[in-house]
Nucleic acid binder design. Structure first.
Lengths: 222, 222
DNA sequence: GGTGTTTCTGCACGATCGGTCAGAAAAAGA
DNA sequence: TCTTTTTCTGACCGATCGTGCAGAAACACC
């Protein structure tokens, strides 16, 4: 109502607001990941964002509200990553794309994955409603698709649910356990080539058991 | 020196000491898993163990020392679980046993797995020396074994390192993400039968791509 | 200019934290 | 029984936590 009286000035004001909130969200994702919910103090998030503590509270009224925003973002991103899992798509290609996308996210958004892992490990004290309202139905839909592929004889009769869990576990492992993987890589972060090797290896390992005997193209890129 | 003057009374005293320390360690493993390192207060651990806070500090001088003991335990248990990975053993059988054992541990010691996950997610601020001193050489040894199997033509030429990571990721997923899995199981914990199904499905998914074409017995029990 | 709104910040609060310490209680040794 | 050692506990300290709040600063609109 009042907000469209003057679009120009409002636009500038909104851009500032959005800019600051984005800075806070980026800082919060990192700090929540590195210190856990309890260990992530508002003052540490504020310091990471380069603003006073009170300003963080001004934009996100409570620590919990800020945390929910952070968790909600990674949840939405992960959901979109599974768009390829659809009955009309070729199973091996679709699952390969899903693994590729998840591994790209493991590299580009590792903090989000870590925040999610922490939240689930602690039994989702804050986002349990996400799990029950959205994750549950979303998961069942994907399982239905995979089971349809099995029914159509397009893939081997594997357990759709455990395949999904295995993909989640393996792809997120490269985000959540980055530090362990780096340590086992002589303390050096994975190179571009090593990330490509990872994609190939994960698809090979997980999809060889899914593809029909004699079927090729498991690890080829689309 | 002085401690073996009287073995009988010393024995009784030691048994009490061991009893209390065990109670503390059990409580600490659970509380560290459920609240993270920062969120796990000494008083909460003490309450869970049913003793005063001061008594926890008496046996484990600092919170960090107690935490190191907890992490060290799960680390040792996991190491022993991989004894089957030896050049002289049949690869598929050995890897299957490893997966079975890891999944049994996921069910019986889920808190230890969660504490480890939390520590790695937060970049091992306290047990980094474990990673560099013990995990690194241990891992390289296991990779050498798997690569020998490949050289001997006993399994397909997969990436030993990524296979190991996939096994870790998948088996530990059933411990660390128990709450998510339970929620997706209509809020009910996995039954005995469902855990058996899990073992079969995980071995099928991960080892089908490892076994030579036409090789059977991937999911059969030893 | 003046006025109202939004943005920002320093300060203060009750609560909880990890850890110290003196001393009680219990057990062991003589 | 008396002494010494070990085990246990409540009270306390300085630091940090999340959050409330009054007011300053910046901005938008007339």
């Amino acid at each position: 109502m009042k907000s469209d009286v003057n679009k120009t000035t409002r636009g500038i004001q909104s851009r500032n607001r959005e800019e600051v909130t984005t800075r806070i969200l980026v800082a919060a994702e990192k700090v929540f990941a590195e210190f856990g919910y309890a260990g992530a103090s508002i003052s540490r998030i504020a310091a990471s964002a380069g603003i006073p503590k009170s300003n963080v509270v001004y934009y996100f009224e409570t620590k919990e509200a800020l945390y929910r925003r952070v968790v909600g973002e990674i949840f939405d991103i992960w959901r979109a990553a599974a768009d390829s899992i659809s009955v009309d798509n070729d199973p091996i290609r679709a699952l390969g794309e899903y693994i590729d996308t998840k591994l790209d996210l493991a590299r580009t958004r590792p903090y989000g994955s870590k925040v999610w892992a922490n939240e689930i490990i602690q039994r989702a004290p804050i986002v349990q409603d996400y799990l029950e309202d959205e994750l549950r139905s979303w998961t069942e839909n994907r399982i239905t698709v995979i089971e349809a592929w099995v029914q159509n004889g397009q893939i081997r009769p594997i357990s759709a649910r455990h395949l999904l869990y295995a993909i989640w576990a393996t792809t997120q492992h490269y985000a959540d356990f980055t530090h362990q993987i780096t340590t086992l890589n002589d303390g050096v972060e994975l190179s571009d080539a090593q990330w490509e090797d990872t994609k190939t290896a994960v698809k090979d390992l997980l999809l060889s058991g899914v593809a029909l005997p004699g079927q090729d193209g498991v690890v080829t890129d689309g």
